[in-house]
Simulated assay, not measured.
Amino acid sequence: MKIKGINLKVISMRMKKPFTTHLETVTNREAIIVEIIDSDGLNGYGEVVAFSSPWYTEETVKTSYHMLKDFFIPLLQKTRIAHPNELTALLSKFRRNQMAKAGLETAIWDLYAKEQQKSLSVLLGGTQSTIPSGVVVGAKTIAESLTQIEQFLNDGYQRVKIKISPENDLMLVSEIRKQFPKLQLMADANSAYSLSEIARLQALDEFGLLMIEQPLAYDDIVDHAKLQRELKTPICLDESIVTFDDARRAVELGSCRVINIKIGRVGGLTTAKRIHDYCYRHHIPVWCGGMLEYGISRAHNIALASLPGFSIAGDISASSRYWEEDITIPEVFVKQGMIEVPTGHGIGYLPNKKRIQDVLLSEESFVL
């Protein structure tokens, strides 16, 4: 690859509605847009999906920027790569910082796909021309949740995820099931429970949930295996799966029956695809998680979710779900619950440069 420059742009946009979990309420969303330029004038784009504060993982926008500027980009200035897969090994000398790594790596994947004149989906081995779209409800009250769900179903979404904790779980799920008895419903706990609350989690078995996501500690695999043996409802692991070996160990231990794959959380597309391939061989369903991201990261998610093992609708909603105006052309649209997988070179979406400029906080360029 003939990379000659990298641009970092920090942007911030107000969400159409605040997004609430028991850990945090997100009103404004910062992100870092990574642009890679080659000597032929082609551009690849990635997005760092860390939040402004470390409530989801230890990373933030500021720490990610520090890692990119002071460590990852200088290493690329000294080392040439021929394929995006090489970047994962190259950056492995630096521990964690998965979202910073993914922002750079996905930009290189987009550029590489354009250099190969292929869509990113095809390059990764995607087999689906459309993918099902799911949506997340992050409301403060049961009434707001019910209203949002009704609207999302009217918009054609096929699966709904709700945020639960011991303070709201049984009442919230019960009310949703009364109003929407056939809804494909899953619950995300974001580590709100402990093993002492097994009986409470068992009580959710009667509601026919698709899965309960990350009920126990964010870094746990062992206790989830104990819990899964006591539940009929499948456990899905999210925050616990940061590396390929995390996924392998979780499957071997029986810690879950489903895995959520987030490109940012696992350090990029190379590892995300490796986890997918392993789960596909072992008949473990996977789905693509969302990070309240902008259109560039959303486009990478679409390409990943076109792989054959993604059998559950992911958290890949329309741009209009979160933004008055997104940063890609076109924006991401959902039609009758499905999203078309782009066939153009790379991610298949162009940056909306005017919109990016309107929401720009800072930018910096680096020569390779």
Rank of each mutant, 00 (worst) to 15 (best):
L87E: 08
L87T: 10
A89D: 14
A89R: 11
A89V: 04
L90F: 07
L90W: 02
L90V: 12
L91E: 14
L91A: 01
S92C: 06
S92I: 09
K93W: 10
K93N: 10
K93T: 10
F94Y: 15
F94E: 09
R95H: 08
R96M: 11
R96V: 08
N97Y: 09
M99T: 05
A100Q: 00
A100C: 09
A100P: 12
K101Y: 04
K101S: 01
K101F: 01
A102I: 04
A102E: 00
G103N: 04
L104Q: 02
E105D: 07
E105N: 10
T106A: 04
T106V: 13
T106M: 14
T106F: 02
A107F: 03
A107G: 09
D110H: 11
L111M: 02
L111C: 02
Y112K: 03
Y112V: 04
A113R: 05
A113L: 08
A113V: 02
K114D: 00
Q116E: 11
Q116V: 00
S119K: 02
S119T: 00
L120T: 03
V122L: 14
V122Y: 09
V122E: 12
L123C: 05
L123E: 01
L124N: 09
L124E: 13
G125E: 05
G126E: 09
T127S: 15
T127M: 01
Q128G: 01
Q128L: 10
Q128F: 03
I131N: 00
S133A: 11
V135E: 04
V135R: 10
G138Q: 06
A139H: 03
A139N: 08
K140R: 09
K140D: 07
I142R: 01
A143E: 12
E144H: 05
S145L: 08
L146A: 06
L146E: 06
T147R: 05
Q148K: 10
Q148M: 15
I149W: 09
E150K: 14
F152Y: 15
F152L: 14
N154P: 04
G156S: 02
Y157E: 04
Y157R: 12
Q158E: 13
Q158D: 05
V160D: 04
V160F: 06
I164M: 08
P166D: 07
P166V: 02
N168S: 07
D169M: 11
L170K: 13
L170F: 13
M171C: 14
M171S: 14
M171P: 00
M171D: 15
L172Q: 04
L172N: 06
V173R: 08
S174L: 00
E175H: 11
K178L: 12
K178H: 12
Q179V: 10
Q179P: 03
F180Q: 13
F180E: 13
P181S: 15
